[in-house]
Amino acid sequence: MGATSDAETICPTGKTISSEPQGPLPATAAKISVRHLNFFYSRRQVLYDIGLDIPEKKITALIGPSGCGKSTFLRTLNRMFETVPYTRVEGEVKLDGEDIFGMSVVDLRRRVGMVFQKSNPFPKSIFDNVAFGARVNGLKNRDKLREVVETSLRRAALWDEVKDSLRKSAYSLSGGQQQRLCIARALAVDPEVILLDEPCSALDPIATAKIEDLLFDLVGSCTIIIVTHNMQQAARVADQTGFFLLGRLIEFDKTEVMFKNPSRKETEDYISGRFG
């Protein structure tokens, strides 16, 4: 095997791919820039030399087979991996040009919110779930809190369904409503980026459609990154899509290019169901 330059690496299929950002540079400014990102669980490396630019106020989907590293990548973006022992990260992740590893994790997670695969409302009322982040941030004024809760629930397209039952337990909501509640909770601290890790995997098609419509509404005000196993969901909602395989970013391009005419055979094989 011949030597590769500093900016190149060899992907599992033996083809040379660049560790510089994959695909065309976004037309809009990059909200998050990732360079030479490597990630390790103890000695096991699970991300290899990832480089990409996430454009601001766009929806970016990350796809790939189970274990390819897409969720791990997502969790590096708000340093959620730090809750897992024996993890190590190398490389650079910048939020608006600022190194995320050098900033306060509380500040980072306020700016970069996260919604998980399984909805995880707190054992509290609907109101208290949404108000939680604002209270942690020191907001005590009741009227202001009420305003934050209503605005967040409206942005999460849940207000009309829960406005008369704000004091009920969050557990009284359906699965789809609970997931939108978690999105409202994330929105309540006014994040600039929202990370969603398979947010619809446990939802029926109607609840899924509501979440997807919600993403379209939110993208005007924040940057959205969604990990999904549902190819059609990525095709429907995302402006650009990244394909991960065995810890490497194989291809990153406009979604219509990825699903109509991908440039990499591995992408084509995966999205058309020929492996994975």
Binding site: M231, Q232, A235, F259, K260, N261, P262, T267, E268, I271, S272
Partner: peptide
């Protein structure tokens, strides 16, 4: 089948 890429084409 909701085909994509070369299958869709």
């Amino acid at each position: 089948e909701q085909p994509v890429a070369s299958d869709l084409r």
